[in-house]
Design a protein around this nucleic acid. Structure first.
Length: 791
DNA sequence: GCCTTGAAGTTACCG
DNA sequence: ACCGGTAACTTCAAGGCG
């Protein structure tokens, strides 16, 4: 019998000493299925110092046959950085023996490297058989009894290897969102002491359930939660920050209470796995925070902020409770209702985020080949790498080992000095996917790289400007093939989309897919320069940026030649006055002479630069305002300062009247002095980028974090600290900062700081170009004198 | 001993 | 836990100053 199924999750276990891979999925009739594959075996490659050693190594390994249950020792022909060579392929019975086997190999003489010994077994299986997570496959199977009583409709044994069918039309997945609240009177909740007080769940049928503890007794609550999961039997479980908080807390708590957190489809508990995520066998456990993290527009990435930004749930339409005070709402019975509402709002927001993020996550998982539950928690570098590893197998290329190397720097892109002032009618030209296209055009790849000591005819290589790195023109390199495939796939999808209605579900899926393709293509250059990368090669990254610099310089020179004035440029963009004919000429030049795609990304009616690079603002033709790099888009300035700057920018770009802007700023300062600005607009948010003890200087946010720690909060690396600047405490900012949650009275705040170090600098950043100085905001002299100043 | 200055440390941005 | 380039702020210590 042949069935069609969509691969949701994959794991393996040993059954009678034999590895059994389990493919968990949904079939085309909507049944939950698991397919057992018992015929796949782990293996490693052994690269000899030279071919003469092959025989000797084989003999030595043969002695280990029984110890490691070695099944086969074969000679295989593989490519390693493009060179064909003979390696040994040693197949074992048990994946768990691989690490020790590898260690023993280090004692054998004649072995240069052991390769691909660190590829996880089920990943190996998918790669070798061209099986993709989050996609449909056909497989010949035979049904067997569900003797372990797993939560599936059918258990099958694979008769043949599944065959990939399509990534389109994902099945109707059962999504389940949850959110827990814990008792926390002493700061951070402690699972050995503090109960879970509320768990809210929401499934695709829009059923919200609220489980509450009986005062401080959470045993039944947790049991009911587990029962709820089992009853609904979700395919996907989503939470917000659940890998860092909810699951570890529940694991600890249930261990303490001696309850089994039995939520998987195979009767097991969530277990911590690769990239710090929690794996739930047979389902995809997804922490939506991983995807929220990539939304740069939202600076403080709390659930309510992200949900608000994405229009999932507006902040003014929900209950907001400061996390630290949850216990109060539990203790005071009359306030409990509010806490219940709060957790309802949270779980609804979480579910809403899942609807926003899952289509992208599914496509990304499919493209890079990582299971859906892992793709979010894997960093960009690993996502790119898994994508490369899959392709490597197809090209018969060996996967290099990850090695520790010293950190090296190299020169990057060019940023032009902007021409300060307001410019009208400016076009922004962008190279499309500049780095990927450079790598394609110049065949930049680890396997085409020609080291300096190698003699070669100059006509056979591309030579990078400035740095002189050489790359073979032929054959096409590893990166070239991969990037071409990615860009081509993206182009095809975008063409397909043009024929579809944007409201169509299919359109949405294709759009998410093309986004994922773009992200992976663009990150591949950065990956090459990542010292942890398997395919790291500084020369590749270095040559790519060198060609990039040449490309933009050539473009600028041509622009100058035809009399097109360039106002600014950064890496792969050029700002020029919008002279239609000349711009078209320039675009043609780039296409014909340089062989790259460049297009008008946008046209500014007005754009304003100061002396600084990477900071500007512009008025678009449709009336929208772009702010780039300036304080208004930075997360470490107060909302107060950001709003001031935004408004100043608006006045400058629309009215072009600095006098109006000064007037406005003076008005804000007045409001502020009268206490009309709410406290939240005075909070400064800064991340702790390292452990608190590692800081060399006492900064304001470190000082604030220390106060929180003293109060019993657990503050970890990566967390955002919100603090305000208070009066007294001395000169240093660090001695005046205080976590905002500790502020009882707004009179504590240091007015002077907010005026002189927030409002005024943010305004002056724009206005000083027009001759405005600090005292224009503060002096009591009449506005008319200012007016005189401009005349 | 106080003030100035600049290097170093730090964060968050751009592309 | 992808890269380098950049701005801007604060802290801290050295240097100026008879």
């Amino acid at each position: 019998m042949i069935i069609r199924f969509w691969l949701l999750d994959i794991n393996y276990d040993l059954v009678g000493g034999i590895p059994e891979i389990r493919l968990w999925g949904i079939d085309d009739k909507g049944k939950r299925v698991v397919i057992l594959e018992r015929n796949f075996r782990p293996y490693v490659y052994i690269l000899p110092i030279n071919e003469q050693f092959l025989k000797k190594i084989t003999e030595e390994i043969d002695k280990l046959r029984n110890k490691y249950k070695i099944l086969e020792i074969d000679v295989a022909e593989k490519k390693y950085f493009g060179k064909i060579l003979k390696v040994l392929k040693v197949t074992l019975l048990n994946p768990r023996n691989v690490p020790r086997f590898r260690e023993d190999l280090s004692k054998i003489r004649g072995i240069k490297e052991v390769l691909e010994a660190d590829i996880r077994f089920y990943m190996r299986y998918m790669i070798d058989n061209d099986i993709y997570p989050s996609a449909w496959h056909d497989v010949e199977v035979e049904e067997v009894s569900n003797k372990n009583r797993w939560d599936v409709d059918h258990v099958y044994i694979a008769k043949k290897t599944p065959i990939f069918v399509s990534y389109e039309n994902p099945p109707d997945l059962r999504i389940f969102a949850f959110d827990i609240e814990c008792y926390n009177v002493l700061g951070e909740p402690n699972p050995l002491r503090d109960p879970v007080i509320i768990i809210a769940t929401l499934n695709k049928n829009k059923e919200i359930k609220i489980f509450q503890a009986r005062d401080k007794d959470d045993e039944e609550l947790i049991k009911n939660f587990i029962k709820d999961i089992k009853e609904y039997d979700p395919d996907i479980i989503v939470g917000y920050n659940s890998n860092r908080f909810d699951w570890p807390y529940l694991r600890e708590r249930t261990k303490h209470l001696k309850i089994r957190l039995d939520v998987s489809r195979a009767g097991g508990q969530p277990t911590q796995s690769v990239y710090g995520h929690f794996s739930i066998v047979g389902r995809a456990n997804i922490d939506l925070f991983d995807f929220a993290e990539e939304i740069n527009e939202v600076k403080v990435k709390t659930l309510e902020n992200i949900a608000d930004y994405l229009g999932v749930k507006k902040k003014n339409e929900r209950v907001l409770i400061e996390g630290a005070f949850i216990y109060e709402y539990w203790d005071k019975l009359e306030k409990r209702k509010i806490l219940v509402e709060y957790s309802k709002d949270d779980v609804e927001s979480t579910y809403g985020l899942a609807e926003k993020f899952l289509p992208f996550a599914i496509q990304l998982s499919n493209i890079v080949g990582l299971p859906l539950d892992q793709v979010g928690s894997a960093s960009v570098g690993y996502r790119v790498e898994w994508h490369l590893m899959r392709q490597a197998y197809k090209f018969n290329e060996l996967i290099p080992n990850r090695i520790e190397r010293p950190y090296e720097t190299y020169k990057g892109a060019i940023v032009l000095k902007p021409k300060p002032g307001i410019h009208k009618n400016v076009a922004v030209l962008d190279f499309s996917s500049m780095y990927p296209n450079i790598m394609i055009q110049k065949n930049i790849s680890p396997d085409t790289y020609v080291p300096p000591y190698e003699k070669i005819d100059e006509s056979k290589v591309y030579i990078a400007p400035e740095v002189g790195h050489r790359f073979l023109k032929n054959p096409p390199g590893f990166y070239k093939k991969i990037l071409e495939r990615l860009l081509k796939a993206r182009k095809e999808i975008r063409n397909k989309m043009k024929k579809l209605d944007p409201s169509n579900i299919e359109y949405r899926i294709l759009d998410e897919r093309q986004k994922a393709l773009k992200i992976i293509a663009n990150a591949t250059y950065g990956y090459c320069g990542w010292s942890n990368a398997r395919w790291y090669k500084r020369e590749i990254a270095e040559a790519t940026t060198a060609w990039g610099r040449k490309l933009i310089k050539d473009t600028i020179n041509f622009a100058k030649k035809i009399g097109l004035e360039i106002i600014y440029g950064d890496t792969d963009s050029i700002f020029a006055y919008y002279d239609k004919e000349k711009i078209e000429k320039l675009i043609k030049y780039v296409e014909k002479d340089l062989g790259f795609d460049i297009k008008i990304d946008k046209v500014y009616k007005k754009v304003f630069f100061t002396e600084a690079k990477k900071r500007y603002c512009g008025l678009l033709e449709d009336g929208r305002i772009d702010v780039v790099g300036l304080e208004a888009v930075r997360g470490d300035w107060t909302d107060l300062a950001k709003e001031v700057q935004e408004k100043v920018i608006e006045i400058i770009l629309t009215k072009e009247n600095p006098y109006d802007a000064v007037e406005y700023v003076r008005h804000i300062i007045k409001d502020f002095k009268e206490g009309k600005i709410p406290l939240y607009k005075l909070i400064i948010w800064k991340s702790l980028t390292k452990h608190i003890s590692e800081y060399a200087v006492e900064t304001a946010h470190v000082a604030a974090a220390k106060q929180l720690i003293q109060m019993g909060y657990k503050i970890s690396k990566g967390e955002k600290i919100g603090f305000v600047v208070c009066k007294g405490g001395g000169e240093k900012l660090s001695s005046k900062s205080k976590p905002y949650i500790l502020i009882k009275d707004q009179s504590e705040i240091d007015e002077e700081y907010y005026i002189n170090k927030q409002i005024i600098p943010a305004a002056l950043r724009i206005l000083s170009y027009f001759g405005i100085r600090e005292d224009n905001f503060i002096s009591t002299e009449r506005q008319s004198s200012l007016l005189d100043f401009f005349q």
